[in-house]
Design a protein around this nucleic acid. Structure first.
Lengths: 220, 220
DNA sequence: GAAAAAGGTAAAGAAATGGTTAAGATTTCA
DNA sequence: TGAAATCTTAACCATTTCTTTACCTTTTTC
């Protein structure tokens, strides 16, 4: 998933943009002034910036000069060609004049994003366990552990529902072991192998058995 | 000096553009129809294409799909948002509606050209791997490696998404191997050949297999 | 406490997946 | 058109992963 920072002091427009982008499955960051924007960018690294020019404090132009290596789409109420040229030459990747069509904005966002390497991570943690859904890797207390496809599917299910009891049938559904006869015996083995791998890194008992029902991940 | 191709059947506008660009010290190529454009592009490699949509013969859209890795600025009389979106998603780098201000056009040309390094090339790197999107060449630890078109498409996809698991189906989608039955066997061979070429330069294992899922580029 | 039920482990065989090679088909380019 | 490069297909092998089986331990129930 890509992250987009919206820098706009107008809360109404910002909210509208945020909703629009979230619907398209982007992660959204917000800043409401130039200084806030710089703070935000020092802490996060979005894949793209939507920058409104009318900002309190620092001007949009000043903010633009501070942004390195992230494409910036400038949004402005001024249809002035002089402004457009100045901002484009100043480093903006694109320039849209209000009012704009949201479909066009989305298309231009895609244009900008497709030029850049995706460097986002999607990490889900539960206690000392951490999975990176993009590299499909598990880390236990920071140590990467190699898992098979099925083992990864199991631990992901558990991590996404920490401290909840997951029935064996739910696990079987999710990982779709489709030999109806003898699936449970297979699951037993997968659980055993998975735990063995966790144990090779840490002594903690992450996976707890709920007798007769299923399993539960303890956030130790 | 940068070279810009103008593809426009309207001689008057074309002449105007050519004069404008020459004044700005660009080299100019001209084509007056879709087929002529393709011929021109097969012989020359401009740094940028200005493409008018109203073309006799091949449509501008068709021409666009044939142009790879050269930024295309579409110029159109149609202010239709639907068209804009279609062309932008279809690979256009920018879209200007007539009538436009020439200063804005020049600024947007600079924006497009600025993405390319001083030597006129767009370089994308991941660790010791580096691709040049213009010459479609890969360098491993600085050593150029010759790749076929398909191999290049694969390594580009991996380099643009470093450390991420790319499913085989995603790769197949991207490089459009279109014999649905036996594509995987083909992919296996491409991967094998690609790795062999990488191995001939470096001992590092850049491409990792994620068993049952796909591949991942390690930034060693 | 014994029997029954459920879960854990280890090992072996089965199945799936990926790697490699080579030959034939196709495309490209001079 | 003919030669060279590239792509596809198929066969075979190596490796990884999954399932099955047997046997063991733990928990529950009576």
């Amino acid at each position: 998933m890509k992250t987009i920072a919206i820098i706009d002091d107008d809360e109404y427009i910002g909210d509208m943009l945020e909703e629009l982008l979230r619907k398209e499955n982007y992660e959204v960051l917000r800043a409401y002034s130039g200084t806030e924007a710089l703070l935000l960018l020092s802490q996060h690294r979005p894949d793209l910036v939507l920058l409104d020019l009318m900002l309190p404090g620092l001007s949009g132009e000043e903010v633009l000069t501070k942004i390195k290596d992230i494409p910036v789409i400038v949004i402005s109420a001024k249809p002035d060609v002089e402004d457009k040229v100045k901002l484009l030459l100043g480093g903006a990747a694109d320039y849209l004049t209000k009012p704009f069509d949201t479909k066009e904005l989305l298309a231009r966002i895609i244009v900008q994003l497709r030029n850049y390497k995706a460097n986002d991570r999607r990490i889900i943690t539960a206690g000392d366990l951490e999975i990176d859904t993009l590299s499909q890797q598990l880390s236990v207390e920071g140590v990467p552990v190699h898992l098979t496809k099925t083992e990864y599917a199991i631990i992901k299910l558990l991590i996404m529902n920490p401290s909840q009891v997951i029935s064996k049938s739910a696990i079987l559904d999710r990982i779709s072991l489709d030999t109806p006869d003898c699936m449970e015996s297979s699951l037993k083995v997968h659980m055993s192998n998975l735990r063995k791998k966790l144990r090779s890194v840490s002594d903690k008992e992450y996976i707890e058995v709920i007798w007769g029902i299923g399993y539960k991940l303890n956030e130790v």
